[in-house]
């Protein structure tokens, strides 16, 4: 139920058995079926969510009501509307399940208590935030500076599992492209090989 969560945690910082048991007390196990929401825009993001099994996506709706995907989360990844979670204010994101999921949720109250009780938890969260910020910077730089072909190649290189697992129209949405444009981009890459 918490295997992936603790494996990822221990990859960054080794926990004692006692620390694991203490942290476990504050975790909420949750199953979510495909297409069910974890969070809808306007609600407060109550949880940090770690994917134990399955895949999630985060998106906003544009003026036409179309999804614009802003992120994916596969096994071991963390997803949430960070600003809403920290400030406990309405979320701007929607988050739902791409597949049937098993999740580990950490509520704001549990998160605050874990920070107080377990110094290694605070360190782990800081590492996650730092990694996420670096990924955000990298992605922004890629979007600004690279051609579409290069952007797609970078995505393949950085997150091959996402590209393999997620339907292409969602990859297109993530890149801010129509499925047709992404198809042409992929075609150009293939023809140059």
């Amino acid at each position: 139920m918490y295997e992936v969560f603790f494996r990822k945690f221990n990859e960054k910082i080794a926990l004692t058995r006692e620390e694991e048991e203490l942290i476990k007390q504050y975790l909420t196990p949750k199953k979510l079926r495909r297409k069910q929401y974890l969070l809808q825009e306007g609600d407060v993001c109550k949880y940090i969510c770690i994917v134990e099994k399955g895949a999630m996506k985060a998106y906003v709706l544009n003026e036409s009501g179309d999804e614009r995907i802003v992120g994916f989360a596969l096994e071991g990844w963390t997803i949430g509307d960070l600003s809403s979670f920290i400030k406990q204010e309405p979320a701007t994101l929607n988050i739902d399940a791409l597949e049937d999921c098993e999740l580990v949720l950490i509520s704001k109250a549990a998160h605050d208590e874990l920070i107080r009780l377990v110094p290694k938890y605070e360190t782990y969260i800081r590492i996650l935030m730092t990694d996420a910020y670096m990924a955000l910077q990298k992605r922004t730089a890629i979007m600004i500076s690279m051609s579409l072909e290069e952007q797609y190649k970078a995505l393949l290189e950085m997150y091959p599992a996402v590209v393999q697992r997620v339907p292409q129209h969602m990859i297109a949405s993530f890149m801010g492209l129509t499925p047709e444009t992404l198809s042409r981009v992929r075609g150009r890459i293939t023809s140059r090989k």
């Binding site: 992120g71 509307d81 992605r139």
Partner: peptide
């Protein structure tokens, strides 16, 4: 700006109106 990675970090502006709550 948008981002992805081991922790999806999202910065958005211009909050849109609420549609409905998750069940």
């Amino acid at each position: 700006s948008i981002g992805d990675g081991p922790f999806v970090l999202v910065v958005l502006c211009n909050q849109t109106s609420k549609i409905m709550s998750a069940k």
